[in-house]
Design a protein around this nucleic acid. Structure first.
Lengths: 179, 179
DNA sequence: ACCTGAACACCGTTCAAGT
DNA sequence: ACCTGAACACCGTTCAAGT
């Protein structure tokens, strides 16, 4: 798994193949199947490792600020590995892992309506994943010599994400007022 | 492209291969490369077709309601094709299409701050894509005989999505009050 | 303009057999 | 317990050549 995470960061998801990983480990491809049932299972563990890389959000003035920080720390963890967001998105969609990402956000929302909290946490994670996935693809495209667009748009994904997060948090805040 | 969309709905994304598509069209695989530069380009057009399937949201009492309806209509379009959300997610991430989804939502948000509107629309699309992707994988897993869980959880994705959307809309509403 | 034939350089996975 | 060897059943893509 550690070798897989390293290889992912070096060559990207499309080139992270079982055969190439075996080569890296000086082993036959078939040997990997003693340790993992299949590639998806391996990727699920890689995904969990990426999410676990999320740095803890220290103390905050209020839970609204803590939720925002927790989400941005998840963003940083995804950005720390090439194609991190795509790997975690797939794993989460398949229901094979990455659920720690949701539960961390969930815990930081200090409201009592547990269904609301769960839905909000899931929404926040989808938002972060979508934003970073988009951003990582764009980074790669630009590094491959595709003429980068207006300088104005370089930090756009980060700002857009923060706006989206703040909208959700503002919505939660109003729900709190109502209750 | 029409054949590809049909095949996607029949066999799912993992089995939508160029070779299988060629078989369906009674043609050699290489023939497809006269019409499309590569598989991604073809998938981008499939993705656009799925998004174009979104039914128009008629008149509404207010823009808040219209935004909600537009998002749920996008949801329905994605659900209308097997693995629809995954296909559109990838295409959008790669920046190869599906941008109509964002601009439709954008137009339905009747606020003047264009940066805010854009960020909100993008957030809503990420939310819908993440939710439906998750839901479609779960549908497939269940249909493959994986013991389906508590009946309570069957409609959970749909409700969670609506909650998330309402939080964003509530946030937008407050932004409007401030302005 | 559109397609075939043939090839290139790969994939994930299984499974008997080895140590 | 862990790995090799060999195979199975595939992939996406290119490109000369055909009509």
């Amino acid at each position: 798994m550690e070798a897989a995470l390293r290889l992912l960061d070096q060559v990207g998801l499309p080139d992270l193949t079982m055969r190439r990983l075996a080569l890296e480990l000086d082993v036959q491809p078939s040997a990997l199947y003693w340790h993992y049932a299949n590639k998806q299972t391996l990727l699920a563990e890689v995904s969990n490792a990426i999410v676990a890389f999320t740095r803890p959000a220290g103390a905050a003035d209020n839970w609204q600020q803590k939720v925002l920080r927790e989400a941005l720390n998840l963003r940083d963890a995804l950005l720390a590995f090439r194609d991190g967001a795509e790997v975690v998105s797939s794993t989460l969609a398949l229901g094979l892992g990455a659920s720690d990402a949701v539960s961390r956000i969930e815990k930081s929302i200090a409201l009592t309506d547990s269904k609301l909290v769960k839905a909000a946490a899931e929404s926040i994670v989808f938002l972060v994943l979508g934003s970073v996935w988009h951003e990582q693809q764009r980074m790669q495209a630009n590094s491959l010599g595709v003429a980068d667009n207006l300088l104005d748009e370089i930090n756009a994904p980060a700002r857009n994400l923060e706006v989206g997060l703040e909208l959700i948090i503002a919505g939660l805040n109003e729900a709190k007022v109502k209750a």
